[in-house]
Computed example of a mutant assay.
Amino acid sequence: MSNTIDAALKAATSQLAASGSTSPAIDAAVLLCHALQKPRSYLFTWPDKTLDSAQQQSFDTLLERRVTGEPVAYIIGEREFWSLPLKVSPSTLIPRPDTERLVELALDKAADCAGDILDLGTGTGAIALALASELPQRRLVGVDLRGEAQALATENSKRLNLSNVTFLQGSWFEPITDGTKFALIVSNPPYIEESDPHLTQGDVRFEPISALVAKDNGLADIKTISDKARDYLQNGGWLLFEHGYDQGNAVRTILEQLGYSRVVTEKDYAGQDRVTLGQYQL
């Protein structure tokens, strides 16, 4: 049997499709690139190149993990977000394209609102690092409850040579010094309801449940942050949340009842409600 790059890709794509992958060809290519330690272009340039036994074995091992449903990002230990290569681990959520919408909206508000920016529940540091890369003159702070996440985000900042961001460990505002004020507070907090059936499907089965699920119909952490953020926002500062596609109305109500103004929900690239933001005037 031929074990050329082309043959390996075709066989792996079929195997992954049969296992239920929604992107079998992409998964196969990413895993093979990782096994070969080569860029994607290599696969198309050398389709007839033969894999040696060690390369084939490495690819087969990676493939077996994906067939069981393990996310590609955890298998290769990396995920791109905002064109930044981020190291990921099972202690953090995998950064998703929808979250880039939160980054876009934060950059829009940052243009008219000078001051430091806080990212709560930072995970890999994706949001804070994306903003730090675009706003080199601004100071970013990221906070996560888990020490593993804080260490990973710090490692990502060093790998990307972004020195204007600091990561702290603690529960929401706990590690922030009293009296500190921010122009923007952004967060992609846990917002999935505990009984949501999606928790047993796809990649989320492998992700940390504490970073996904919140009590009170998924709104508990959003309520906590919205309330406490008022003590840490400068006059005219903005609070921005990523949330579930069906939570826009509820999040707007939370912000409005707490005195935020100019509250609006923005859609993601798929046309679903995804980010709600409000301004806090003292």
Rank of each mutant, 00 (worst) to 15 (best):
A11E: 15
I225T: 06
P90W: 01
S171E: 09
L162C: 04
T99C: 08
W238I: 09
A211M: 07
F241E: 10
E194A: 10
L212V: 03
R205K: 13
V67R: 11
L219M: 10
T92Y: 00
L43A: 10
E194W: 07
L129G: 01
L86V: 13
G20Y: 06
Q57M: 07
Y269S: 15
L84D: 08
A151Y: 03
P208S: 14
Q279W: 14
N156W: 14
P175G: 05
A126R: 07
V72R: 05
Q56F: 09
D144Y: 05
L93F: 12
P39S: 12
Q247R: 14
C33H: 02
N249H: 06
L199H: 06
A73S: 10
S157K: 03
G202H: 10
S187W: 15
L118M: 07
N156E: 12
A28G: 14
T224H: 14
E155V: 08
T45G: 05
I254M: 03
I209N: 01
E207W: 05
L282G: 13
G142T: 05
R159E: 05
A128R: 01
V263I: 14
A7D: 04
P39M: 14
F167V: 07
T92Q: 00
E174R: 02
E266Q: 14
L129H: 02
I26L: 12
Y42R: 03
S163Q: 07
L120S: 01
R146P: 00
A128I: 03
I185E: 12
M1W: 14
A114F: 08
T154I: 01
A54Q: 15
L239E: 00
Q257V: 02
T13G: 15
Q37L: 10
W172G: 03
L51V: 13
L16K: 13
A18M: 13
E155T: 11
K223G: 02
P85H: 13
L93Q: 14
G271E: 11
S21F: 02
G244E: 01
A7K: 07
L212A: 03
G115D: 05
S41Q: 10
C33I: 02
R205E: 08
L86A: 14
T13F: 13
S23R: 09
E266G: 02
R101F: 04
P190G: 04
I176H: 00
V72P: 01
A29S: 14
L240N: 00
D119W: 03
V103C: 15
N188W: 11
Y74R: 09
H198Y: 12
G170N: 08
D203G: 08
L16C: 14
E193P: 02
P71D: 05
D268K: 11
G147S: 09
V72N: 03
P90M: 01
P136C: 08
K228P: 02
T124G: 09
L9Q: 08
E148T: 06
Q37M: 11
L62N: 09
S195D: 11
G244V: 00
I117D: 00
K109P: 01
V165K: 01
E100F: 04
P175T: 03
D6R: 15
D119Y: 04
L140A: 03
Y260D: 07
L43S: 08
E134R: 09
L233D: 03
